[in-house]
Every structure is written in C-alpha cells, then in structure tokens.
Write a protein that binds this DNA or RNA. Sequence first.
DNA 1: ATTAGCACCTGACAC
DNA 2: TGTGTCAGGTGCTAA
Lengths: 182, 182
Amino acid sequence: MFEKPLTPSDVGKLNRLVIPKQHAEKYFPLGGGDSGEKGLLLSFEDESGKSWRFRYSYWNSSQSYVLTKGWSRFVKEKRLDAGDVVSFERRKLNGDRFYIRWRRRPVPVQDSGAVQEIPGPPMSAWTRVFYSAHPYPPHPHGPPPLLYQPDSLHHASIPTGTKYSLSRILEFWKNKIEMRNK
Amino acid sequence: MFEKPLTPSDVGKLNRLVIPKQHAEKYFPLGGGDSGEKGLLLSFEDESGKSWRFRYSYWNSSQSYVLTKGWSRFVKEKRLDAGDVVSFERRKLNGDRFYIRWRRRPVPVQDSGAVQEIPGPPMSAWTRVFYSAHPYPPHPHGPPPLLYQPDSLHHASIPTGTKYSLSRILEFWKNKIEMRNK
DNA sequence: ATTAGCACCTGACAC
DNA sequence: TGTGTCAGGTGCTAA
C-alpha cells in the first residue's frame, strides 16, 4: 500500500505515527460520523507473524491521521529510529490481512559535523551517558539541536539502575545549558 | 483519614489530584456499577468553613482515583504548591462531614554540612529547582532564572548521599531546556 | 483565544 | 524477576 520514512516525532515521545493524509484516506478510510468518533482498531502482522494492534484515528486539531495506542510498543520492540521506513501492506492471498514491515534507513545519515564534543574528562563520560540514554533527539525544527544521537551510541548500555551524584549532574547541565544559551 | 504531599502535577495544569489507591478505596469507595460510572461529588469543608465540591472518579486507563472538577479552584485559592500537604478528615462530631486541610511543605531538614565527594552546589539546589520549576510556567518577564539560585540555598532537604536515577534527571532537564527554548 | 474538564495513555519505578 | 501504582502526559470539547 504505502511506506513512510519515520520522522523523529514518529519514533519519539509523542507515541504516535502520522499517516500521510492521502494514504490514510485511501487505505484506511474512517467512515465519517460512525467510526470517525473513536477511531478504529487496526491489526497488522509483522515479519515474524506477531500481531500488532494500533488505534487509528483522526486528530481534528492537527487534521491528521494517526496511529496511537500500541505504536510506541512497536517502535521499541523494533528499535525504530528516525529515517527508518515502515511499510503497510495488504495481502489478499490468505484472508485479506494487513501487514506491517520495516527496514533500516536507506543510507546512514551523513555526518554534518554537528556533533559537539563537550571538553573535559568528566564530561566525556557524561556525554556518553547522555547520548546513550536519551531516547529522543530534540525536535528537528527551530534551534539547533542540543543533543545528537550518533548511530554508534544507540545501544551503548548503561545499567538502568545507575545513579549519579547531584553535583556532577548539576555541573554538567549547567555547562550544557550555558553553551546552549550563548 | 489521610494526607498527601502534593506533586507538581497535583498543583499543575492537569487540574486533578491523584488519590493514592489505598486511601481512595478505603475512605471514598466507589460503589461498583452505580456511582462507579460517573464518579461522585464529594463535599469538604475548609478551615474557614467554606464548602468545596470536587468531582471524584476513577480513571480506567491509569487505574487511579482522582479529584477533578473543582480541584484547580482549590489549588488556586489556597495557592498550593508542590510539596504542600493536603489532608482529608472525617469528623463525626457534628454531622459526619468531610474536611479538607492543607499546610505548607514541611520545613526542610537542616544541612548537615557534610562535604560532597565532588564540589558542587548543596542538595537543596536540586529540590528547589525541581519543585519550583513545575507548577505554572514561571516566566513573568525578563529572562527566566538560570538553573538554580545558589544564594537561596540554606537548607538541604535531601540526605547528602542522595542520588537520582538517570531517567528522572533526564526528564527534569529536558523540561528545563524546553522551557528555556520556548 | 484561553482554559477547565474529561477520558484516555504510558513509562518509570518501587516492591 | 514481574506487576501495580501513579506522576506526568495527550487530544478533544465546552464554556
């Protein structure tokens, strides 16, 4: 049916996938007043045969069609990232089902030289911690990103229970924000 | 009956107070199918004798009990802030009524003077920032205050060894930065 | 235009 | 380890 390259918001904390209107209206029509109220529950099968249910609805405020409930679980399980592509298919072969596929982003993002190193011995530790732990890059529009998440750091593991002393936290972030505000 | 120290959300723009489940089910039972649907209207008397009505209901999605309608007016009139404590009481003395009381957040524990492993601001910087930052967006005019006010730190309300989980730290600072960028 | 209120949703974390 | 709780969110509607 169609594909969509995921935006940062699609894989971010908004927990929703925007379906481009032309595709939404063509393939997932919401019947006006009836199902249009609360949306639909759409079921898809992934590459492993696992079934995924997403709530599909229309947001009047943004006039867009979205998958909401269930979407974030999919993003997490598949470890989807901005630029990756999801595709929705319908196969009438055995029973007319919906399928959802995904693939890594076609070409690695070119390094624009935007990654900023924070100087200082403790800081480098912190940048690593932060990069690897920060699930969502900042919004792509507006001011230049404060944080950047290079591919190589995606899954660097920090034990989830790791804790840090306040003074180091404050020191680090004071710096961050001062840089940001310059 | 019980008390609750208010969270930033309880006094913030969500306009609701979460009643901890244990207390809710003990003192404000929602009778299954009857009142469970639409909640109740609870009436309380404050310290001045003024009557407050709150809508009390159960949110299925989060499985929590909340005061909604009317709550924000109470917060505003009493100028409640995060950390302040509300208490709910029932007095059978004259007529078995509900009372609602409130008090300012407990005075912080005196700073022990212990030195941090790494030089940095006292712990209260953190608490102060954390709580004062949330409720209502606090930029009246002029540049919003930078991260913390070292000059206003006379107490430590957290034991000096306290550490924080990464997720809390990141969440907090993400908010901070977003506010500054607004 | 703003916002209280409402019914939902989710991730983090304490146990 | 899971699981339940709940703090912090969302979009929508009505006023």
